[in-house]
Design a protein around this nucleic acid. Structure first.
Lengths: 231, 231
DNA sequence: CTCCAAAGGTATGTCAGCGAGCCATTGGCC
DNA sequence: GGCCAATGGCTCGCTGACATACCTTTGGAG
């Protein structure tokens, strides 16, 4: 009986079904899985996939509408569409959370890069990674965070592990909440793109050690930026 | 719109409150956080910490009683106690799950070992790690899986990241379900203890690269054992 | 032009899970 | 010997979430 219990006896549910559904939809939008102008899956489909009732999905979507994240249109070929401009969430985190979030992120993402580099990737996966790299490198400041996240998620997907991808998505969401509270500058972006290039090249070349190394440096960059701004 | 959605649009809840509560309590027992003969926290305390009602906690405990995991005694100094002999769960997994579970486990645990080695640990943490190592090395075949898990959890705790610890616990649970379906032999155990020794030594010496390396070898051992038995 | 498939919008009855309170049992403390 | 604190055991009313069914809107296909 000691403090490993703190991890195991934590609350079984992060929130109620409504809150968790909002959270997921927000993630899809903020991480750029559904881009501005694109349509979310239909309410019925979301209800099935998220494992909640359609009523709950609709309440969640309503909440996103009220916060100007999405708009819904009726009729065939209607649906719920992501707005071009999405609002920024209110920041404000505790310090302990920062260490926790950054530690988990580093473990997951360096591991994902290494694992992806160690697999033999198919042509479509290789093409996908290159495409996401290109997308991120040509992104404007406004789009950057979203396309950056899409790239990192693509790397996680390339591991072939669904639960690792899910873990990266969640960890990234937490990290982005922190990153949103500091400015994103042109030089950071150039530097970041160069690092992305190294990471993806290492993965495509099948060099796990170098992929891990490159990802570690990439993450350490934003991590120290964050600690500098927030401490 | 592509298949990163599979990770983000997965079900929001793993099961109902009852099922998730049973799962957590089972984890505490199987991972050895509460050892045979020891007492679980009181129902009221569990209800608070797990964030569910006491009714739900009691239903979960009832379920564990019916499956001979625990026994409850009334009165002051009573409580719910873990039985000396706990039953094995029914095995039976899909192959895709194995790759998924082992990939996540390797990423999390090698990352945890590396991170723990990179921190400056306090005296009590160092003592704790040594104690868990000793426990595992002197464990009988029957106790081994439990004490092994406790050691690995202690390593995760040594990272100072609660969410990393929680992730390791969950991942380990999944891996153990698989491992329970293959025999545990004396030679494996000796080999495993030697590897534990290397891992802990590297962590206490503050050598991250070597800690990662040792953990990777340790995990690869059981991973290939598993693939051999189940494929 | 009409039809109808597919999308969002609405209403209703049911039930799991919750909160809160009380009861029953036990064993150490005074 | 009696008290009482802390445990598990039990009940009841309330509410969030669910399943299901139906309505309304829309735009392409025939």
């Amino acid at each position: 009986m000691e403090h490993a219990q703190e991890a195991l006896f934590r609350p079984v549910r992060a929130g109620n079904a409504f809150e968790e559904t909002v959270e997921r939809l927000m993630q899809s939008i903020r991480l750029g899985v559904v881009a501005p102008g694109e349509r979310l899956p239909s309410e019925r489909e979301l209800a099935t996939r998220l494992g909640v009732s359609r009523v709950t999905v609709r309440e969640a979507i309503r909440s996103l509408q009220e916060n100007n994240y999405v708009e819904s249109r009726r009729g065939r070929y209607g649906g719920t569409f992501v707005n071009a401009e999405i609002p920024k969430p209110a920041p404000g985190k505790e310090f302990g959370d920062i260490h926790d979030a950054l530690t988990l992120r580093k473990v997951l993402e360096t591991g994902a890069a290494e694992t992806a580099a160690g697999r033999s990737l198919g042509p479509s996966e290789r093409r996908g990674l290159r495409a996401h790299l290109e997308e991120a490198s040509t992104a404007s400041l406004a789009e950057y965070r979203r396309k950056d996240s899409r790239l990192h998620l693509a790397i996680a997907e390339a591991t072939g592990s669904a639960s690792l991808t899910a873990a990266v998505a969640e960890s990234r969401m937490r990290a982005n909440e922190l990153l949103d509270s500091i400015p994103l500058l042109e030089p950071n972006l150039v530097h970041s793109n160069a690092q992305h290039e190294r990471i993806i090249t290492s993965i495509l070349d099948g060099d796990p050690a170098s992929a891990r190394q490159a990802m570690a440096e990439h993450l350490d960059g934003t991590a120290s930026l964050l600690r500098g701004f927030l401490v």
